[in-house]
């Protein structure tokens, strides 16, 4: 039976994991390779690393983390943050990641999706999208870039469809309004996007309890749910979450 995925997200800054609230106030939560190994053992289905290192000179640290993770962790993982050229994509893929996530760079230059997909396959190219509610937009949601700081004149639904047609293999959809709040995913946004595209959608932002995952995977029609704080701070384990999803008859890998 095809299963819904639990994706654990690790924000990495200069080789250390951090966690922020609404994209700000980052606190150190541990070593990314050790944490990845822990989540692998705990039953995470996939991992995502976001490189939030500001400077280009320190990119090498992240590539080193990717290489170490690939040597020890035998589940898929993707890398996002600061990916803006085909060479960036290549560096991450050759270091052992399955996928790369493009976000701001794809909004500025959508052809990176097309070129990345034709070089490495659609399955490698994930569109990361940060969106927030905005009644002025046709779908009711606006796309933001630069870690949620810059509002764009771009509708979230239109952008999702465009990315799919350019060859993106998956969308990680992050709600800026919900991020770090632990009050639940943005169900309406997730449902709208997931039901409008033919590629998998990973819901992100707002997870605080296993019930939130059940809701977004069912009502939100998400194919996968991304979690961070709720497991990083020890409130829940991946296993706790999967047990709950099983009771809700949501198929997961146990």
């Amino acid at each position: 039976m095809f299963q819904k995925r639990i994706v654990v997200c690790l924000d990495v800054k200069e080789g250390r994991c951090t966690k922020g609230i609404k994209f700000k106030d980052n606190i150190d939560v541990g070593d990314p390779v050790e944490m990845a190994a822990k989540y692998y053992r705990d039953g995470a289905d996939e991992l995502v690393f976001y490189d939030i290192t500001a400077s280009h000179e320190k990119r090498g640290i992240m590539i080193d983390v990717v290489r170490k993770v690939a040597e020890q962790i035998f589940i898929p993982f993707s890398v996002g943050g600061g990916i803006s050229t085909l060479d960036d994509i290549k560096d991450v893929i050759l270091a052992g990641a399955e996928k790369v996530s493009v976000n701001s760079s794809a909004v500025r230059n959508p052809s990176i999706i097309e070129e990345g997909a034709s070089l490495f396959g659609s399955q490698c190219i994930v569109l990361g999208m940060d969106a927030a509610a905005d009644p002025d937009m046709p779908s009711g949601y606006r796309v933001f870039i630069n870690g949620g700081r810059k509002a764009m004149d771009l509708d979230a639904l239109a952008w999702a469809k465009q990315a799919e047609s350019l060859g993106a293999g998956e969308i990680v959809l992050n709600s800026i309004d919900a991020d770090g709040m632990k009050t639940g995913y943005e169900i309406n946004l997730t449902k709208m996007i997931s039901r409008s595209v033919g590629i998998p959608v990973v819901a992100s932002g707002g997870a605080g309890s296993p019930e939130h995952l059940a809701a977004v995977l069912k009502e939100g029609s998400a194919d996968a749910a991304l979690i961070a704080s709720m497991v990083h701070f020890g409130d829940y384990t991946v296993e706790d979450i999967k047990k709950h999803l099983t009771t809700q008859k949501i198929p997961v890998r146990m």
């Binding site: 299963q3 033919g198 590629i199 194919d223």
Partner: peptide, 28 residues
């Protein structure tokens, strides 16, 4: 959704390749 991306269970027939792997195990 296409691609079929994620974990799915398989049913195999007895072969050395599947030794010590429970039926209906999930693969990526």
């Amino acid at each position: 959704k296409v691609p079929h991306m994620g974990w799915n269970t398989i049913e195999y027939r007895e072969l050395p390749l599947f030794k010590d792997i429970p039926q209906n195990s999930s693969f990526y």
